[in-house]
Design a protein around this nucleic acid. Structure first.
Lengths: 135, 135
DNA sequence: CTCCGCGTTGAACGTATGTTGAGGTCAAGC
DNA sequence: GCTTGACCTCAACATACGTTCAACGCGGAG
């Protein structure tokens, strides 16, 4: 079993920065940025180049959609932290549940706040009207 | 009816920056920032001070919740542009519909994207695997 | 009249999210 | 061996969203 050192950076993670960038529809600079912030992880080749596995493009695509509902890169990375290496559909399912739940919670807050306004116009006014009685 | 020059900055808009800030729960600097970006409008007193009407705090409260679902200040201001002066509950209702619709559209996009992933694991992989056969 | 407090402006700073460019390395082809 | 292109790092810049600070004005209490 000591046959070779199992070159991790070649068998498991064949994708370069630009591979991932193309596949996920973002710029290479963004891929590096996301790696720096823990949204995706990479191993390094002997020449110090990043190599990503195929879940990287997936993470980034999801992140872009999640950002649209108000999640920060940090928050998304935290959710992704629950993902194992080589995530299966059910792993993605759990992540999906968390992200959608968060999005719906925020939408519910919006709806609730707006609902108050619809029912009572005064709910949004500034209470304290210390308008002088002089005219 | 030409009794006085109807001093707009006193009768319609009695609230100062700090009034609005307190009522809406943001810092005075934020209120000025929002005015600069068209989220709220103000008239000026003779001494060049801002005076807001009572819808200002309302707009800001709504904006803060709308930001949580990923809307930018610009986008929110655009939606608010449909509001008349002294908005009635039904005016707020229309704004609410637009904002909630946008939030739900974004959540739907998230859900849809994640749903694809749950059903087929390969949907998110990088198609082109040009792994050289040489080991 | 002076001082206090609130208002004004503009610039600088700070975080989040990236992009761009300079300067250097590495592997492949002629 | 030299060029070419993709990669590396690090720093500067850019935009959105604010906060903080310095310098100044104005209006009422003593």
């Amino acid at each position: 079993m000591t046959t070779t050192a199992t070159p991790t950076a070649s068998r498991d993670s064949p994708f370069t920065v630009s591979d991932v960038a193309t596949a996920s529809g973002v710029a290479p600079s963004a891929v590096r940025f996301y790696e720096k912030h823990g949204l995706v992880t990479a191993v390094r080749t002997a020449g110090d180049q990043r190599r990503f596995d195929d879940s990287a493009a997936c993470r980034i695509k999801v992140a872009k959609v999640a950002q649209r509902v108000g999640l920060t890169v940090r928050e998304i990375a935290d959710v992704f932290a629950a993902l194992p290496a080589d995530p299966q559909p059910e792993d993605w399912g759990r992540v999906a549940d968390v992200l959608v739940a968060e999005a719906e919670a925020r939408t519910a807050a919006l709806r609730s706040h707006l609902g108050e306004m619809r029912s009572g116009a005064k709910l949004c006014d500034i209470d304290e009207r210390r308008e002088s009685p002089a005219r």
